[in-house]
Amino acid sequence: MSSQVRKRLEIFFFVAPALVLFALFVVVPVIQAGRYSVYRWNGLGPIDNFVGLQNYADALRDQVFTGAVMNNLTIIVLSILIQLPLGLLIALLLNREMKGRTALRVIIFVPYVLAEVVAGVIWLMLLQPRGPVDAIFDALGLGGLKQLWLGDPDIALYTVMFVLTWKYLGLAVILFLAGLQGVPPDLYEAAQIDGASWWQVQRKITIPLLGPTIRTWGFLSMIGSLQLFDMVWILTGGGPANSTMTMATYLINQGTNRSLYGYSSAVAVLVFVISLVLAAIYQGFVLRRDAQDTPRTKKVKR
C-alpha cells in the first residue's frame, strides 16, 4: 500500500512540472483565444467590447481568409499528388542494390535536415528576378520559360509548392524506405518463382504492404500543409497580392501586424476547427484501415 502511494507520489513529482508548463503555455492560451475571439480588442487596455460571434462571421466573409483556406487545401492535395508517386518511385529505386545507394539516400534526405528558414532564404535568393535560377534557364536556352517566380500572383503558389516538394520529399522517401524493410523477402521470392514481372511485384506486393506507411505519411503531410508558415513567410510573406497566403500567415498578418487580437483569435479558433475536422475525416476514412481488426472484433463481442 505504502509502496503504491510512494509510486503515485513519484509519478506526480516527475509529471507535474511538464503538466504545469503544458497547462500554462498550451491549455491556458487556447482557452484565452476562445475568450478573446468574442471581443474586439487591439491588444492594449481592457477587454470589454463584447461582439459575440461577429469576428467569426467577418472571418468567414473575408475573401483573403477564404482564399488562404483554399491555398492550404490546394497545398494538401498537390503535396499528396506530387510527393506520393515521386517519393514511392525514388524509394523503390533506392531500395535496389546499386552503387552509391547510401550516398543517394543521404542526398535525397539532406534538404529535410536543413533548417526551414535557411532553405527558404537560399531559395529566395535563387529565385530573384535575374537571379541564379533565371541564369540557369538562359544557359539551357530556355530563357522563354523564365517567370517572375515569386512576383507573379499566378505562379508564386506553384513556386512555393516546388520548394516544399524539394524540402519534404526526403521525409517521404525515408519513411517509405523504412516501410520497405518491413516487407518479408520471401514474398518477393515466391512472386519471382511464379514469374511475376518487376512492375507486377511492386503493384501487387510492395505497395499494398506499404499501405500503413503511406497512410501515416499522408497524415503527416496533411498536418504539415495545414500549419504551413515558415517557408511561405520567408519566400513571399503571403504575397504577391495574397496569392500565397496560408491560414497561418493570415493569422500573423491580422494579429501581430494589424493588432486585431480579438479577430485573429477567432481566426485561430477557425483554423483549429478546420484542422480538427480534416484530421478526424482522415482518421475515420483512411487511418481506420490500419486498425481494422480491433474495432470490428469489439463490435462482434458487443
Binding site: Q128, L148, G239, P240
Partner: peptide
C-alpha cells in the same frame, strides 16, 4: 521594376 510585387523596400541589393 520587374517583379515589383515581390520586391522588398530596403533589405538587400534586390
Amino acid at each position: 521594376n520587374t517583379g515589383f510585387l515581390a520586391t522588398p523596400a530596403q533589405e538587400g541589393p534586390t
